[in-house]
């Protein structure tokens, strides 16, 4: 309880220069956001359009880092660190290894996309347009970051989400077990 009271006083003390803060926040955020959005979207396009799968993997790494930047723009620094470490550091690298292990029989003249290219294009970007249109009704919402977010996240993980936290540990064990038993060279059954 005392923790929150302290946070409250902290907030009151800052209320004086709230307007100035707000302007600074908005300015920095829009520059950050637009540059990140351009980075993410162009990397994502490269991932799905590039013929060379290894290059696509490298651009995937870029998209993941851009999303980490988005978390920074939303003031969740911890999530940004986790994104950079796990997504870019582990998952993207895992995928790159997978690509390198399976490229021996790569044939250059093979098409990289199937025949539904145009139907899929219309379908997916139609859905995107519909989604963006339906988001227009939302109110802009508040813009100030939460105080002591990391503390609250930790409390949530240990209290409200204690059971999911246990479940995810079991899930990681299952993934380890499954990946190991499949990737092992020896024949099992």
């Amino acid at each position: 309880m005392r923790f929150y009271a302290a946070a409250d006083e902290d907030h009151k003390a800052q209320k004086g220069n709230i307007y100035e803060n707000r302007i600074r926040l908005l300015m920095s955020n829009s520059v950050l956001f637009y540059s990140l959005a351009v980075l993410i979207i162009s990397c994502a396009f490269a991932v799905v359009f590039l013929r060379n799968i290894f290059h696509a993997g490298l651009f995937l790494l870029g998209a993941f880092l851009g999303v980490a930047g988005i978390y920074i723009a939303l003031f969740n620094y911890f999530l940004a660190a986790v994104q950079a470490l796990v997504y870019s550091g582990a998952i993207a690298v895992l995928i790159l290894f997978g690509i390198m292990l399976t490229q021996r029989h790569y044939r250059k003249e093979d098409p990289s996309h199937n025949a539904f290219k145009w139907i899929a294009f219309v379908l997916s970007f139609g859905i995107a347009g519909f989604l963006v249109d339906s988001f227009r009704s939302l109110k802009p919402g508040s813009i100030f970051p939460v105080k002591h977010l990391l503390y609250q996240m930790g409390m949530a993980l240990m209290q409200t989400y204690a059971i999911p936290f246990e479940v995810i540990s079991a899930l990681l064990l299952v993934a380890l077990l499954g990946a190991f038993s499949l990737a092992r060279e020896k024949e099992d059954l």
Partner: peptide, 8 residues
């Protein structure tokens, strides 16, 4: 949790 072991 239900799906991942089934893939394997």
């Amino acid at each position: 949790m239900m799906s991942i072991p089934l893939y394997v």
